[in-house]
Amino acid sequence: MSRPLSPHLTWYKPQITSTLSILHRFTGIVLALGAVALSWWVAAVAIGGETYAGTAWLYTSIAGQIVLFGWTLALAFHLSNGIRHLFWDAGIGFDMPTVNRSGIAVLVMTALLTLAVWLIVLLA
């Protein structure tokens, strides 16, 4: 006979704290995949010829640009929330009102950073 397990993930009210935390994890995975793409791009530049042409075609296609946009978004979030984490590791900003405010600040900074990067790219 085994006892039932009390309801957890699906019954727990979504918290701004845990939602941003799982987003940090998710964007981390996206960025790790991005690191693969980046390493490949560098290698492709070194190899040149057909390999680079194929890679460039893939990266500049509409799907590639959408992925690239998603990737900068992930980078902006992971960077902003990462800075928030570094503050926590230094022992700063642990009271709940500050936690909620810094959470919102992270979302705002993510949007601004992403916009800034793409403005620079499009204007240049």
Binding site: L38, W41, V45, G82, I83, W118
Partner: peptide, 28 residues
Amino acid sequence: TAMALIPLAIWFAVSVVRMSTASQAAAA
């Protein structure tokens, strides 16, 4: 590594997303 990545990531985001559309010669 996280601390080192803050400036590096900002440099990277600005310069490399731009380079993704460059020709092979320019990128090289």
